[in-house]
Design a protein around this nucleic acid. Sequence first.
DNA 1: GCCAACGTTGGC
DNA 2: GCCAACGTTGGC
Length: 153
Amino acid sequence: MHYWLMKSEPSEVSVDDALAAPRSTVPWTGVRNYQARNFMRDAMRVGDGVLFYHSSCAEPGIVGIARVASTPYPDPTQFDPKSPYHDPGSKREEPRWLLVDVQVLRKTRNLTLPQLRADPALADLLVLQRGNRLSITPVERRHWDRILERLAD
DNA sequence: GCCAACGTTGGC
DNA sequence: GCCAACGTTGGC
């Protein structure tokens, strides 16, 4: 069992959008960074815990608890010339980009970025480190527990 | 809109 | 392999 934080721009897919989807499940499309892809391809397992994070918005923060809901499979948007995520260099027989399905288990209050930063117990949470731009980061068990504790307040 | 930080590209 | 130029992310 591993834990992850996954960023989504709410203008693209918000936690409410995900909740409104069938089985509250969305394919995590559009990851075009090799490190983030490798987490999905090599390390994620069905059932892993996911912190659903809103980025590039008025109030960035953790807004939901989710789980990894599939094994990795090719991201269809890489083959779609009309998609902003189209990758003309990726071949169908050798897809470059993979994704997993993510199922939202519950929406939470927004545990905002400033609130996360203010918590000494979360000082070395990866997403808080300077310069971090990875859209998927592993979360240590102690951080996961702390965040769920904070969300229970 | 600004800009720091980081990733990618491509010439050499 | 180096590294400058460029593109992207994402908070502010």
